[in-house]
Amino acid sequence: MNRLFLLLPFLIFSCSQIKQISKSEESKLILELLEKYIVHDSLYETRTINKYLLPYEYYEQEYSEDGDLAPPPYGYGSKNEFDIINSIELNPFFSDSASIVHVKHQLLNSEKIAKKHKLSTLDIVNLAMNNEDQDSWYSFYLPIFNADSSAVYMQYDFYPNGFGGFGWGNGAVLLKENGEWKYHDFIPGWIN
């Protein structure tokens, strides 16, 4: 019971630091971030974009009988809050206690949140998207914000010859500087 009273102020403080925005503001922000990401990493040449954001698959940390950390489940979409904060590129922006709680909340609710947003309103004309090749496409994951929304982690998967074949995925960190989102760092992902 005493632990609960010690934890309660932390949880109240953490939740009070998280800025709430409306669904339309959230959608505009997601589209703005994706457009910056697409342009910066030149993800617009002869490709199609999946109109749905992908959710993350949250997993709990598991340990072996020897106390060693077990590997995460297979797949680049499997994440937990420790994957985010243990990344060298992300640690400076996501390692405070409020961000850890916020990241976990976003990951746990990513399926529900991702369903609310369609990417069909991305401005493919201004992005110079060329959707001629319907067999290759990008799928973007729900952006993950730190507690004060000053940093965001973004991730995509790319399949040049259809789903399940050869492909790769990467991530990036964008930072909000003087009210504008700026691309900060590339995070290498997977390839098969």
Rank of each mutant, 00 (worst) to 15 (best):
A172F: 02
L7K: 08
F93N: 02
L90G: 00
D157I: 03
S149D: 07
G171C: 01
D185A: 15
E111M: 12
L119Y: 05
L6F: 08
Q155R: 13
K28M: 03
L8N: 07
K116F: 12
L29T: 12
S99F: 01
I84S: 00
S24H: 12
E32A: 04
H117W: 14
L142Q: 06
E57G: 13
V103I: 10
K104L: 07
I124M: 11
L8W: 10
Y52T: 12
N161M: 05
L119A: 06
V39E: 09
P55G: 11
I12Q: 11
S110V: 07
D68L: 15
A151K: 01
M154I: 13
I38L: 08
Y138M: 08
V39A: 06
P73E: 06
D133L: 10
L107T: 00
E65S: 12
N91C: 08
E57V: 09
P188G: 13
I113Q: 06
I18E: 03
E81L: 04
V101F: 14
Y76A: 14
Y159W: 14
F10L: 15
N161I: 10
P71E: 11
N192T: 11
Q17H: 09
T121K: 15
D83Y: 03
L54W: 09
P72F: 05
E57D: 15
Y44R: 08
H105I: 04
N192H: 13
P71D: 12
V39L: 06
L33Q: 13
F140V: 03
I18Y: 07
Q134A: 08
C15P: 02
E57Y: 13
L7M: 14
E180H: 12
I144H: 02
L4W: 08
K176L: 05
S150L: 06
I88S: 10
E81R: 09
E26K: 06
N126M: 08
S24R: 14
G169A: 05
E81Q: 11
E25V: 15
R3Q: 12
Y141D: 02
S95I: 12
W168S: 04
H105R: 12
L8Y: 09
K23Q: 14
K79P: 01
E26H: 09
D68C: 11
L6P: 00
